[in-house]
Amino acid sequence: MRDIEARVVRLRFIGNFLAVLALAGLLTGAAAAAEEPARGPVTNLPLPRFVSLKTSEGNARRGPSLSHRIDWVFRHPSMPLRLTAEYGHWRRVEDREGQGGWVHYSLLSGVRTVVVTEDLAELHLKPDPGTPVMAQAEQGAIARLGACDPLWCQISAGGQKGWVPKTALWGVDPDEVRE
């Protein structure tokens, strides 16, 4: 009888051990998947990502079709938007305040822009606060996004160009680097 009980205990131990190994394997796989960005089912591009408004007006709808009601209207051409989902010809987007909805893909552009979030943000000659200030940008200004290093981004607007701390911009991820 003790022999049978000992085998049962060993089998439980082996079963638990295998379950732990399987769980560890699943966790490792989940961690690897978490490191890789999600991809859009239509474009296979990373989600979320930033895009810009191609037109001077874009209706954001409650759902991905013309039959859904309009919840929001974007009215600033080149405005940066965070694209969070894809469905057919529709893209779910939001602005820096979280407002948005589903927009037809033809109203969006892959051209990268940013909104200046700091009042009178200084555009420096180089990505260094010790370099000369080339211009200043008002809060809410929309600028074209150029290169970015871990802390600074180059932007251009109104014929002016310079480097701004990434923390003064919306439309670029904190860890994003661009050449």
Results as ranks from 00 to 15, higher is better:
35 E>G: 06
36 E>C: 04
38 A>G: 07
39 R>M: 10
40 G>N: 06
41 P>L: 06
43 T>H: 06
45 L>E: 08
46 P>Q: 12
46 P>Y: 12
46 P>A: 09
46 P>F: 14
46 P>M: 10
47 L>W: 08
47 L>A: 07
48 P>T: 03
49 R>F: 11
49 R>S: 05
51 V>K: 06
52 S>E: 06
52 S>P: 10
52 S>F: 03
53 L>F: 05
54 K>E: 04
56 S>G: 03
58 G>E: 03
59 N>T: 02
59 N>A: 12
59 N>W: 13
61 R>D: 02
61 R>Q: 08
61 R>A: 01
61 R>C: 01
63 G>Q: 08
64 P>R: 12
64 P>N: 05
65 S>E: 06
65 S>A: 13
66 L>F: 14
66 L>P: 00
66 L>E: 14
67 S>L: 14
68 H>M: 11
69 R>S: 08
71 D>E: 14
71 D>A: 09
71 D>W: 15
72 W>Y: 14
73 V>C: 08
73 V>E: 13
73 V>Q: 10
74 F>G: 05
76 H>G: 07
77 P>A: 01
78 S>E: 10
79 M>L: 15
80 P>T: 02
82 R>M: 12
83 L>E: 13
83 L>V: 05
84 T>K: 12
84 T>L: 08
84 T>C: 00
84 T>W: 06
85 A>K: 15
85 A>V: 07
87 Y>D: 12
88 G>D: 11
89 H>A: 06
89 H>L: 07
90 W>F: 08
90 W>S: 02
91 R>P: 00
92 R>H: 12
94 E>I: 02
94 E>G: 03
94 E>D: 07
95 D>W: 11
96 R>P: 07
96 R>D: 10
97 E>H: 13
98 G>L: 03
98 G>W: 06
100 G>Q: 09
100 G>W: 09
101 G>N: 09
104 H>A: 09
104 H>L: 01
105 Y>M: 06
106 S>E: 04
106 S>D: 04
107 L>D: 13
107 L>W: 15
111 V>R: 14
112 R>D: 03
113 T>C: 01
114 V>Y: 00
115 V>R: 14
115 V>H: 07
116 V>T: 08
117 T>L: 06
118 E>Y: 01
119 D>N: 15
119 D>M: 11
120 L>G: 00
121 A>L: 02
121 A>K: 06
121 A>F: 02
123 L>G: 13
123 L>H: 00
124 H>I: 00
125 L>Y: 13
125 L>W: 14
130 G>A: 15
132 P>F: 01
133 V>A: 00
133 V>M: 02
136 Q>Y: 06
136 Q>C: 02
136 Q>I: 08
137 A>E: 04
